[in-house]
Design a protein around this nucleic acid. Sequence first.
DNA 1: ACCGACCTAACCAATCGACT
DNA 2: AGTCGATTGGTTAGGTCGGT
Length: 315
Amino acid sequence: MNLAGFDLNLLKVMDALLREGSVTRAGQRLGLSQPAVSAALGRLRLSFGDELFVRAGQGLAPTEFALGLERPLRHILDGIEAMAGATGSWQPEEADEALKISGIDFFAEMLMPQLAARLFAEAPEMKVQFLDLIPGLSFEHLDQHRIDIVLMPQLETPAWVASRPVFRSPFVLIARRGNPRLGRLAEGDTVPLDLFCDLTQILCSPSGQLKAMGDAALEALGRQRRVRMTTPFFSGIVRTVATTDAVALVPAQLARAAAAREGLALYAPPMEVPAPVITMYWHRRTDAHPAHRWLRGLVAEVLAPLNDGLAPLPP
DNA sequence: ACCGACCTAACCAATCGACT
DNA sequence: AGTCGATTGGTTAGGTCGGT
């Protein structure tokens, strides 16, 4: 290919075609007419010496060659966007980006309301979408542009993932006020180990596992608890604990927020459960992108008070 | 036969280089 | 600096093709 004669605008067209799989929809995405995109596809075909897309029913299917271009192309366009963003004058009030945040429903309660208020006031055209955390696939989804920010406990990351700790998440035990199993305790008391192991417990587990950090801490003492139900949602746990004699270990911040509303009492577990550091993750290619930076800053700002009174965050 | 999607033809506007 | 023709890439209108 002769780069001197290559129109780099065609890369945007190629990207839109790969994303949409349709000349018509690629045109809508780019703000061009369908024939304009068709002509651009013709120029791309000439430049690359490949059909790139072939008719497949009501749309286009990429050739193997076109599929091979997908990742390097995204990388190049992300770099150009980041460069333009770093040198341009991005303003939230004029921004129209749509960014996706992935996390458990803890954040629907503890992040969304304040984030929404700030977003609507400061970036009226920007869109934020919350997506479920898919266990084990978060980094893959970051790489595939399916999400932009992930909020989850700190763990090992590939080199291309950037991170920032946002708050510690200690666990407390919640039970409904008037739960007869805890009648002799005052709110805030530590639950005796024997009683703790005998209580019916509900566990929040996005992947459906019956054991979590609390169980590891108990096993270190040679004990087990009775987890009799799991759910991927904290909201379901809170409602169930509020209406039954089951109890649950949940993040202290969530427990305090829900306690008055749901009639819950908070207790300390009998064993030391390490408080995970909830961390924000993103792809390094968006490091310099002003919209991403702005939203990450906003998320960190909204979540920062959750660490009040807790040990300082690691660097 | 109808519909949706892509391609082609004809035309228009902007840009660029050569020329005066 | 201004003019002019070639080139490029856009649009609209209409044709073609394949699925239902």
